[in-house]
Amino acid sequence: MLTLAHYLVLSGIIFAIGMTGVLVRRNLIVMFMSLELMLNAVNINLAAFSNHLQSMTGQVFIVFVMAVAAAEAAVGLALIISLFRNRQTINADEINTMRG
């Protein structure tokens, strides 16, 4: 029998993986994929709570999160491409022309 706690633990693990990925990995595309993992963890959480509370709000919110994630993907990939055209790299460590 799956309870609310199972879903929360699962989403917690996925969120932790995503967060570590963003902080540790240096390839922008991988960082971006990790960001998507974080959002997916959020979606699992929302669905679990929505079921638990028997309220629709959480499920509606998932649609918002997915729509925003799609828009973010479009803009984010475009920005990464324009950076690649200028620098021929997508390594986060090499993005350091500005230092203060």
Binding site: G18, M38, L39, G76, L79, S82
Partner: peptide, 20 residues
């Protein structure tokens, strides 16, 4: 373009935190 990518990664990261 560097500014854009940095803003994007960190902005999306903070949205993720906020959402969680």
């Amino acid at each position: 373009s560097e500014a854009g990518v940095k803003y994007f990664i960190i902005g999306a990261f903070s949205s993720g935190l906020f959402l969680y």
